[in-house]
Nucleic acid binder design. Structure first.
Length: 670
DNA sequence: ACAGAATCAAATTAT
DNA sequence: TTGATTCTGT
């Protein structure tokens, strides 16, 4: 380790902020520090807490530590995402927080549904704006009343009103949303001295990864958790702050210095990842942004290959050309597929790319984009599990009751809902009451009672102490009882589709079972965590040799020998929403600065070669639209680099076509 | 309650 | 253009 890294690891006299430039060995510092604390300073593993933003980062950290400390001690360490820590705190302190221990965690999609039902509107854009606003308020630690006071225009007043009933509904469902997972523990620590002391005594050192992405709420949580002893290590990079839209604020970096005058500042400026050519371009670009903490990243890995910039006709051509170049480069550089990544600004850009890669039989994995847990069949099963853990979860009740179809429909649910609202009870509870049953037709009532009866018996058994077989058996029994496989064959248009969907379900069940075994969680504990888990985590399990497709956001923290950054166009990479000067287009320059940092993140993912492509036209809406190259390309100062050395770029159109044909005729080429 | 037909909006980024 | 959602008839 270099002196700065060593200093960051060894410093234990108080709070410290490690400004870790891209590729400067940030993860290495965090894991080394944990290992140092436990291995050499005699800290108990359970007194060391590390928080990250993604499950993937957490498990990567855990994996690295297993090699340093051994599996047993790592098991005791508290390494988790902010949100998982929130779940754990709320679960442990459920009484003080006024929640039942089996509370539900609703994901963004569920919450959108809730807002939709509260507003009774079909305007999707408006609903989304309201959801976003509520989220921002929560991230800023504003409750509904405070939000109402701070509302500046009609739209915000409107959102504040929804916020009120939204919170009431969540409370009634015994459910929390993602933002609550930070906000509620934070409020709990602020208001409850016993709880605060308990946690502060438990945590002897707190390490925070990606500190620049914390929001006001997370900052407060950190302050409360560390207390006056303030033993923490925050690690971050202001040039990689790309989550402003989610409430993250770089002011948290500056605030740290104000709130902790003794704060030790350590800069990691040596880059171990990229060639000087790539780093120079990245540095050149980012100097356009105002600096909070000036730092000078350098590398001694040599000049390397020049950065290529290619104009493509359209999205399709871009995808095909990149696929071909990838293929050529793999052969020429004697590289493997996993050495390559294709990065883009928005998920939709993956489509054309996937098609082109499939055509050439190039293996790939798509990271980011939550496909798995967004699939209907997965959400169906999870609705049952959520309901089992928490019968007050009305959204789960509605979904489970109606899928598979069992004669419970609109009319029945409406009767239940009205009765439940009047009596302030859950729909599940309403279904058990005489008064509500009177309003339902005998035939439907029969179906309803069968459903409710089954669930009650099932929930009874699910609440018994966790044991390995128990969870597995319960899950299999549930599938048999609701006959879900049969249902899939019923609703799918063809058997092939049904088989694939059932496969997805089996994957989910396997995953749940293995997870229960690993962590010894009960079914309800398991379900609370599922909402927080994304597809990303599963990537570690299987590591086939495949090209990575990823959004720029999801690519942060990753690195690849060869990176293709596609769609580098005005309007897309500096992404501009609608340019019509609408209401909340505040923060003009800040918007473009964040986009610039996004570009910076993309560039700095590359170790040895970087290739930029942009499309001269792009289908938008229904019609073709002319596009211009991104302003960021000019800001990279590429004029100074040697002539383009990428073999694919020098191919004539005819040469490209021949190459494409050759690959199509030879399916086993990959 | 449900299946097929007509209509309509679409494009950030994600725990 | 698609893909998803809403409407309509049985």
């Amino acid at each position: 380790m270099n002196p700065a890294q060593q200093q960051a690891v060894r410093y234990l006299d108080g709070p410290s902020l490690v400004l870790a430039g891209a590729g400067s060995g940030k993860t290495r510092v965090i894991t080394s520090k944990i290992s140092y604390l436990v291995g050499q300073c005699g800290y108990e593993p359970k007194s060391v807490f590390a928080v990250t933003f993604t499950n993937k980062a957490a498990s990567e950290m855990r994996e690295r530590l297993i090699k340093m400390l051994g599996a047993e001690r790592v098991l005791e360490l508290n390494i988790s995402t902010f949100h998982s820590l929130g779940v754990r705190m709320l679960r442990e302190e459920s009484k003080a927080a006024g929640l039942k221990t089996g509370f539900s965690v609703m994901d963004a999609q569920d919450c959108f549904g809730l807002i939709q039902s509260l507003v009774a509107s079909t305007d999707k854009a408006r609903l989304k704006a309201i959801q976003q606003q509520i989220s921002l308020w929560k991230n800023a630690l504003l409750d509904p009343d405070a939000a109402t006071h701070s509302a500046q225009n009609a739209m915000m007043m409107d959102a504040a009103r929804v916020y009120h009933s939204y919170q009431t509904s969540l409370r009634a469902y015994q459910a929390v949303d993602f933002d609550d997972l930070i906000m509620l523990p934070c409020q709990l620590l602020a208001d409850n001295e016993d709880v605060r002391e308990k946690w502060q005594n438990r945590i002897r050192h707190l390490l925070i990864d990606e500190y620049q992405d914390t929001n006001a709420c997370q900052y407060e949580l950190m302050r409360h958790l560390t207390g006056v002893r303030a033993m923490f290590t925050a690690v971050g990079d202001d040039d990689q702050a790309i989550y402003g839209w989610r409430g993250a604020t770089m002011q948290n970096l500056a605030r740290l210095q104000d709130d902790y005058p003794v704060l030790k500042l350590i800069k990691l400026e040596q880059n171990y990842r990229s060639t000087q050519t790539i780093l120079a371009a990245a540095n050149h670009l980012i100097t356009r942004n105002p600096k909070l903490f000036p730092k000078q990243l350098w590398s001694d890995l040599g000049t390397g290959e020049a950065i290529s910039v290619s104009r493509m006709d359209g999205e399709l051509e871009q995808a095909q050309a990149v696929a071909i170049r990838l293929s050529a480069a793999r052969t020429e550089k004697r590289a493997t597929w996993k050495d390559f990544a294709v990065l883009y600004r928005s998920n939709q850009q993956a489509r054309a790319m996937e098609q082109a890669l499939r055509d050439l039989r190039i293996p790939y994995t798509v990271s980011g984009g939550q496909s798995f847990f967004d699939k209907a069949e997965v959400r169906d099963i999870l609705a049952y599990l959520r309901l089992v853990a928490n019968e007050q979860d009305d959204p789960a009740f509605i979904r489970a009751a109606t899928t598979p179809r069992r004669g419970i429909g609109q009319a029945t649910l409406q009767a239940l809902g009205e009765y439940a609202a009047k009596r302030h009870i859950s729909m599940f509870a309403a279904a058990c009451e005489q008064g509500a049953q009177a309003a339902i037709n005998p035939k439907q009532l029969q179906a309803l009672q069968t459903f409710v009866g089954f669930l009650q018996r099932y929930a009874m058994r699910a609440s018994q102490p966790a044991s390995r077989e128990h969870v597995a058996t319960l899950l299999d029994e549930l599938m048999a009882a609701i006959n879900y496989e049969h249902y899939l064959y019923d609703v799918s248009s063809d058997d092939r589709a049904a088989r694939m969907r059932w496969q997805t379900v089996l994957e989910l069940l396997d995953w749940l079972k293995s997870r229960a075994t690993e962590s010894n969680w009960s079914l309800s504990e398991l379900v609370q965590h599922v909402a927080l888990i994304t597809m990303l985590e599963r990537q570690g399990e299987q590591s086939p040799d495949a090209v990575t497709l990823s959004t720029l956001h999801a690519a942060k923290g990753l690195e690849f020998p060869h990176v293709y950054l596609i769609g580098v166009e005005e309007g897309l990479l500096p992404h501009l929403g609608r340019e019509s000067d609408e209401d909340s287009l505040a923060g003009g320059p800040e918007r473009i600065e964040e986009e610039r940092r996004l570009m910076y993140v993309g560039i700095t993912r590359a170790q040895r070669s970087l290739h930029l492509t942009w499309c001269a036209r792009r289908r938008r809406g229904g019609q073709d639209q002319a596009c211009e190259i991104s302003r960021f390309v000019a800001e990279m100062g590429l004029e100074q680099q040697p002539a383009v050395a990428d073999p694919g770029a020098s191919l004539t159109p005819k040469g490209r076509l021949d190459m494409l044909k050759a690959m199509l005729l030879k399916p086993g080429a990959s």
